[in-house]
Design a protein around this nucleic acid. Structure first.
Length: 350
RNA sequence: UUCCUAGCCGCGGA
């Protein structure tokens, strides 16, 4: 059973639920580890209903199995299902509380996050930081600061979160003070300070931070390129882009977006073709491309990109993609096709 | 086993 459990874990991690299931079924004396790993394997591959079925067929449960089921739902944003699990749990630990707190905080549900936070028996770094984030996102910087001040211990992550809380709410000076006061800094905290400056168009300060960095990541470069692009310095942004040691999907998208917004439709579309040779475009990249097609009035190109999203790139079109397509089709005079698209949308029309 | 756990960049939202 021990060896089989290892195998189960392996298949679960590499995303092969069928193989995991085969191993699971072959185990005669399944222990709690086997069950939990089977649940996790299904959860990681998005088979939540299967995961739940496995969970329900368990003979006995422990805290870890409950947490596994809870996290499975939370990771897929199935908050209602997660709540049911949470309420049914016979016992909870810090992992339980932090998991549900993080989910509420990231989902922007401040009231729920607060409720959970206040009900918790104890807090650690992974409880304070999400709560701080939740306040920052709700533009309650003082409450965020209150959490920060109350923390029994602070890590580089908490300091960076506080920096971002100020930056997101336009308090650049305070963000800088936090940055200067941090006991240690890493590439993420540097990037956070960098982004604080570039997002507000303070390219001089941003450059100082950038050149002061011992180590840079793709994020650092992207911030600089994006800063120039939104300043209207497309050529400068392009030079930064070309100098990047590595290109992520965001690097490409920054440039796509820059070209699309400045009316360089053909450049945008050419860039997109180059991008696809090395990088899987995501939903945002497609938005920029559709925006470019839209402004160029290129119905044919827009359609071909739109209809390749799900089948070729596994990207589900969002409402914004649909509305760009509707705009493009109707302005091109393809009213019937626009109507058909609306009829087949997976959302209710606004 | 739940946890490669909480913090950084692109569209939109705010």
């Amino acid at each position: 059973a021990f060896a089989s459990n290892r195998l189960l874990e392996l298949y679960g991690r590499c995303g092969s639920a069928q193989h995991a299931r085969r191993v699971f079924d072959s185990i005669v004396h399944k222990d709690l580890y086997s069950w939990v790993r089977m649940i996790t394997a299904y959860a990681r591959t998005g088979h939540l209903e299967e995961a739940k079925r496995v969970f329900d067929s368990m003979k006995e449960w422990n805290l870890v199995s409950w947490n596994a089921m809870l996290s499975a739902f939370l990771h897929h944003n199935l908050t209602d299902e997660a709540k049911v699990v949470f309420d049914a749990m016979p016992e909870r630990n810090t992992i339980t509380w932090n998991a549900i707190l993080s989910a509420f905080a990231q989902g922007g549900d401040l009231d729920a996050a607060k409720l959970v936070f206040d009900s918790m028996p104890e807090w650690d770094l992974c409880s304070w930081t999400p709560m701080l984030d939740a306040y920052a996102e709700a533009q309650l910087v003082r409450n965020a600061r209150g959490i920060f001040d109350c923390m029994k211990e602070r890590s580089i992550v908490s300091w960076t979160a506080m920096l971002c809380a100020y930056a997101q709410n336009g308090h650049l000076e305070d963000a800088r003070q936090v940055f200067d006061a941090m006991p240690e800094r890493d590439v993420v905290s540097y990037n956070a300070m960098l982004a604080a400056y570039t997002q507000r168009g303070h390219m001089d300060e941003a450059s100082q931070v950038f050149f002061g960095m011992e180590e840079r990541s793709s994020v650092s470069w992207n911030c600089i390129a994006c800063g120039y692009a939104q300043d209207g310095h497309i050529d400068a942004a392009t030079r930064v882009f070309l100098a990047m040691p590595e290109l992520s999907v965001v690097s490409w998208t920054v440039m796509l977006c820059a070209y699309a917004h400045t009316g360089q439709w053909t450049d945008a579309l050419e860039l997109f073709s180059s991008m696809k040779m090395t990088t899987m475009p995501d939903d945002v990249a497609f938005l920029c491309v559709l925006l470019a097609c839209n402004h160029a009035g290129s119905v044919r190109s827009g359609c071909s990109h739109f209809f390749s999203m799900a089948p070729d790139y596994n990207v589900a079109p969002r409402k914004q993609h649909y509305s760009l397509m509707l705009d493009l089709l109707s302005r091109g005079g393809y009213l019937d096709d626009a109507g058909e698209l609306v009829a087949n949308m997976p959302f209710a029309p606004d």
